[in-house]
Amino acid sequence: MSLMADLPGADRLSARLRRDTHAAHEAAQGSGFLDALASGLLPWEAYADLTAQHWFLYEALELAAGTMADDPVARAFVFPELMRLPSLEADLHYLHGPCWPDRIAALPATTTYCTRLRYAANSHPIGFIAHHYTRYLGDLSGGQYLGRAIARAYGLNGDGHRFFIFDGIEPTALKTYYRQLLDSLPWSHYEQDEFVTEVLEAYRLNIAVLDDLRRRWT
């Protein structure tokens, strides 16, 4: 039985997350850069740039997943089927060719994000789960719409946008299971506060990356 099975829905951690991050979520989803990209108003190089920034972020996050794989709390959130680095590298190879590592660079906001991510996600399960939740549940939610829109706008059919494709995963079912895991975490109210604070920081850092991309391409 879940450790929080008797809590009413509004008191569950997953419900609190939705409430407390609503404004940040809307700000990220409302990025002018993503809107322009989804509408095909930017050159393909802008999409390739977004893909490159994702590579830096997921390299940091998925290295932390290796560190946290044996942690008694965090290991439940290490889903091998969610790993994005192989898909991102395939996308970058398609977009830039075999020399893609020499053709990408982290934006200033991406470097800041990666620094925070490495510190938080490697030091404590709260930090790891906060950044894991922010990235992957976003990919399984709004990221699915974005991926389809980008594929239409830039004429991609698998190759070049594999980052958005989760083979063998039903997004709604996985998100439901993920939220059940969150609600079962044996955290105090203080630890939950710390977790929500780190999720909000991850949103802020992500928005800063999108702002850097917007300034470069729009």
Rank of each mutant, 00 (worst) to 15 (best):
A105G: 10
W217F: 10
L85S: 11
C114F: 09
A76I: 05
F77A: 12
G142N: 08
P43N: 01
L50C: 02
S87V: 02
A15R: 07
S184L: 02
I104W: 03
Q192L: 02
E201V: 13
T115E: 11
L200F: 13
F163Q: 00
I169F: 01
L41M: 06
A130H: 06
R16Y: 07
L42P: 13
T134W: 00
L117I: 12
N122A: 10
S2P: 03
H161W: 08
S2T: 05
S14R: 11
P186Y: 06
D49Q: 14
D91F: 14
L50H: 07
T111H: 03
H25P: 10
A24K: 11
A202M: 09
Y177K: 15
D159N: 11
A36E: 10
S39M: 04
I169W: 07
F56E: 03
D49V: 09
L13K: 06
S87I: 00
V209D: 08
S184Q: 08
R148W: 00
G160W: 05
A52R: 07
G168Y: 14
R216I: 02
L200N: 14
D159F: 00
Q144L: 12
R118Q: 12
G40S: 14
D35S: 02
T21V: 13
A106Y: 11
L107G: 08
F56W: 03
R162D: 04
A48W: 12
L182E: 05
G138P: 13
V73E: 15
A28R: 03
G147C: 00
A15H: 07
M1D: 14
A5Q: 15
H124S: 09
L50K: 04
R204M: 00
R216M: 03
Y177M: 13
L57E: 04
Y154W: 10
W44S: 08
A36N: 13
D20V: 10
H22A: 10
L213W: 04
L50E: 07
R214C: 04
G97M: 11
E170T: 14
V73M: 12
